[in-house]
């Protein structure tokens, strides 16, 4: 059993550390196709593989049945025993060469066209709406795990992995970027699917700016940078279940969004503000975002309709 994955998949290169451990690019010997191998070491006790791992991987496999165009394919899963206390779970994903980060870097001088950004955003939100309606949240959405194929197809990667990897994460403290984190996570309050919408908003802005929106160096610094743009939230919106006081931040007013993201059009700006809403309950959902007028005032769309 232990050898089946290494026999079927021939490693080609190490493609990055990733927050959750080493990821390898490999070749499927049968099909010749490239795959991304992600391994997790799970602590196993005398009762075998933990329930959380069994359920989370089963959920990813279930999502796979829908064959959603904006979600990366999970082609295979394998569990192999490392020792009495440890089992290695290998997830075999389809391999896409390019992520949104490199896609943005490679874009020629004036940056991406407004239509291109709209298309990427629509696909990104489609994938997200699909995950959210299946009760999966990403929790770590950023340009590095949004893949863009050579045909311009957006595919979300690394979703739902946080719970599978949680055992492993406790062992290896990893530096996870703070830039796409929503206030509720930075404030260590409770959070749910709106976290991904915040991250999507940050990425939306970054597509126009071609540099990240909020580049904080610590949790507090990140919050400060956020409030410089959206303003300090009112007292009644400040979460009550946290230790950090609102008084630690200067009373800032919101800045006009066009000052921060200059090329964005009016509707785009409105959508962006709906995504960068401090209160997660008031933040727009992925499904509603897809219905936003920003996606409707599209010339090409009206042409195809008529």
């Amino acid at each position: 059993m232990a050898n089946t994955t290494s026999v079927q998949y021939e490693p080609v290169a190490e493609i990055g550390g990733g927050a959750y451990g080493t990821v390898y690019k490999a070749r499927d010997i049968e099909s010749g196709q490239f795959v991304a191998l992600k391994s997790v070491r799970v602590q196993t006790d005398q009762n075998g593989l933990p329930i959380s791992t069994v359920r989370e991987v089963a959920l990813l496999r279930r999502l796979e049945q829908f064959d959603h165009p904006n979600v990366v394919r999970l082609m295979d899963v394998c569990a192999t025993q490392r020792s009495d206390q440890e089992t290695k779970v290998t997830l075999v994903f389809e391999h896409v060469d390019q992520d949104l980060k490199t896609y943005l870097e490679r874009a020629p001088a004036p940056g991406l066209s407004p239509d291109c950004i709209k298309d990427l955003m629509r696909q990104l939100l489609c994938g997200l709406a699909f995950l959210h309606s299946n009760r999966v949240m990403h929790r770590d959405l950023k340009p590095e795990n949004i893949l863009v194929t050579s045909q311009g197809q957006v595919k979300l990667a690394d979703f739902g992995l946080a719970r599978i990897y949680s055992c492993h994460m406790a062992l290896t403290p990893v530096v996870v970027t703070l830039w796409y984190r929503p206030p509720e996570v930075l404030l260590q309050s409770s959070y749910a699917t709106p976290v991904d919408i915040w991250s999507t908003g940050c990425i939306f802005a970054e597509m126009f700016r071609r540099k990240p929106l909020f580049c904080g160096e610590s949790e507090v610094d990140q919050l400060g940078k956020i409030f410089e743009v959206i303003g300090l939230p009112p007292e009644d919106e400040w979460p009550t279940d946290i230790t950090l006081s609102r008084k630690n931040f200067p009373p800032l007013m919101p800045r006009p969004i066009a000052d921060v993201v200059s090329e964005i059009n009016e509707q785009g700006g409105k959508l962006l503000l709906n995504m960068l809403t401090f209160d997660p309950l008031k933040r727009i959902s992925a499904l509603n975002a897809l219905e936003h007028p920003y996606f409707h005032d599209d010339e090409t769309l009206t042409q195809t309709k008529s």
Partner: peptide, 8 residues
């Protein structure tokens, strides 16, 4: 492994 974790 045989079921590829298809438990749904």
């Amino acid at each position: 492994c045989g079921l590829k974790f298809n438990l749904s």
